[in-house]
Simulated scan of single mutants.
Amino acid sequence: MTVRILVDADACPVKDEIYTVALRHQVAVVVVANSYLRIPEHKLISRKIVSDGFDAADDWIAEAAGPDAIVVTADIPLADRSLKAGARVISPSGKPFTDDSIGTAMATRSIMADRRVGVAGIGAGGPPPFSKADRSRFLSALDAAIVAAKRAQG
């Protein structure tokens, strides 16, 4: 099996960075989305458009994930499913999801969801704005994940 990157692309702010790192390492990228997204024309970069059904892109990625995959997503339940399939998982901010950290992330997500519902219509805010530091951290994390995945394959 060859290392590949599966991108949960609909709201991914680091697609260009993914292409840059992947091409440098000669790693295939599959951009998964609910609708058409432009991608660079390159033999290593492809798109998978899934139905616009709820979680259709997540389902496709989770089924395609495995030990040969690096999944890029901010979606914590998808990260959990991908880890269980044996994939390496990185958030767009560069934070790796691991077997040790995913339980805490899932619990925090649940608490925050309950908190948002409890404020009855008052916006509890979202994640902080995406920063240059996030972008830099992501580039380093993706590079490290690719190197580790290639090393694991022998």
Rank of each mutant, 00 (worst) to 15 (best):
V89C: 05
I111M: 15
A105S: 11
V117A: 15
H42G: 04
I49K: 13
P129M: 02
V3R: 01
I39P: 04
G53L: 15
V72F: 02
R109H: 10
S131F: 08
V117F: 10
A105C: 10
A57S: 11
V7S: 05
D99P: 11
E63A: 13
V117Q: 13
K15C: 08
K48A: 07
A124D: 05
K15P: 07
D100K: 14
G123R: 13
P96H: 02
P96D: 04
S136V: 08
V14N: 06
I18D: 03
R151F: 03
T73V: 06
S140K: 13
E41L: 07
P128H: 12
K15A: 05
R24Q: 12
D52C: 04
G123I: 03
R115A: 14
V7I: 05
A133Q: 14
S110R: 15
K84T: 08
R88M: 13
D59W: 07
D10N: 06
T108C: 09
D114C: 11
D52I: 11
A141I: 04
D59S: 12
D80W: 13
C12Y: 01
P96A: 05
V50T: 15
D134Q: 10
S91L: 06
E17T: 13
A22I: 06
K150R: 07
M1V: 01
D100S: 15
A69I: 02
Y36E: 05
R81F: 08
P96W: 01
L83D: 09
A64C: 09
G121Q: 09
Q153E: 05
V50R: 11
G94I: 11
V71R: 00
G125A: 12
S131G: 12
A107P: 05
K48F: 01
V32F: 02
A113S: 13
V7G: 01
S91C: 09
K15Y: 03
